[in-house]
Simulated assay, not measured.
Amino acid sequence: MRTRDSAADREGLLTMPRSRGAMSGVLLILLGAWGAIIPFVGPLFGFAFTPDTAWQWTAARGWLEVLPGAAAILGGLILIGSGSRASASLGAWLAAAAGAWFVIGRTLAGPWGIGDVGVPTGTSSGMRALEELAFFSLLGVVIVFLAAAAQGRVSVRGRRAAGKPAPAAERDPRASAAGAGPVPETGSETGPETGPERKGAHEYRPAQGDQGAG
């Protein structure tokens, strides 16, 4: 019995409902797709970094935008399809790393020789700030936040998975009637003994041989 309970506890620690990471997974996929595609389609709408040419591949775009975008998409897919806490946690960590790379990637691009994505092409300071946020900074922060939220959700365990005993009513249905008072013994329809038949009542009866003595 102990072996069965231990196996069930281990299974409860590893498994989880698939819906736990579904919403975060969908949002991570959308944000990752945005980060990976926007450098190629943004120039069509005047929303881009230099070189502002649509569908132009560069090493910097590949390393600093396509790669983290694809990693965020993969992390989101793992979260959506996983019924295991271990794999879901891996997906969340992968997405968090992708978001962090969106934020810090350009700082490391020069020392690592990855390349340069250029500068925002907006005609005003407000538009340039918006491009900076939408392409890198804010995008990465939101991805990290969603990944952290997903990590928190998949790490939550229920009562049974955490090894806590089930309520008494679930273990034994008869326990739910324990608070209703004593239960009459089997075979007794009248409940507790009453009248002359109750315990000790014969001690007060006069003996049959003494009834005529008076």
Rank of each mutant, 00 (worst) to 15 (best):
G110E: 15
A92P: 07
F49P: 09
S6V: 13
A59S: 15
V142Q: 02
A71Q: 08
R20V: 14
G122K: 10
L130Y: 07
A36P: 02
Y204P: 00
G122I: 03
P120W: 03
M23T: 15
K199C: 11
S124P: 06
G62A: 15
R159P: 08
T194A: 14
V103N: 05
S137L: 13
A207N: 07
G122E: 00
D210S: 12
S176N: 08
F145C: 09
V26W: 13
G76V: 02
E170Y: 07
G35H: 03
R85E: 06
F135T: 00
P51M: 05
Q211I: 12
I29K: 01
G187Q: 03
F40T: 01
W93E: 00
I143F: 00
P43D: 02
I114V: 14
G163H: 10
P165Y: 06
M23A: 14
K164G: 03
D116N: 15
A72L: 01
Q211R: 14
V26I: 15
Q211L: 15
A70I: 11
G69D: 10
P184H: 07
A166Q: 09
G99Y: 03
R160F: 09
P111D: 09
A88R: 02
R10Q: 12
L77W: 01
A22Q: 06
I73P: 00
P51T: 11
R128E: 15
R153C: 03
L108V: 15
D116H: 14
V144I: 09
G158D: 15
A148C: 04
A177W: 10
Q151V: 00
D5Q: 14
I114K: 10
V66P: 09
T50I: 03
I104M: 09
G195L: 03
Q208W: 12
R159A: 13
G212P: 06
L90T: 06
S124R: 00
A8G: 07
P206N: 10
I29F: 10
L30Y: 08
A147G: 07
P184V: 08
A207P: 02
L14S: 12
L30G: 05
F102K: 04
T121A: 10
T123N: 07
V66M: 08
A162P: 06
K199H: 12
L14P: 00
E193L: 13
L133N: 04
G212T: 08
D5L: 14
R205H: 09
T3M: 07
T53R: 15
G62L: 15
P173K: 10
E203D: 13
G12L: 11
A98D: 05
S125I: 11
G212L: 11
R205T: 08
V142W: 11
A168P: 03
P68S: 06
G42S: 07
F145I: 14
Q56T: 12
A33K: 01
R2K: 04
L79H: 02
A97K: 05
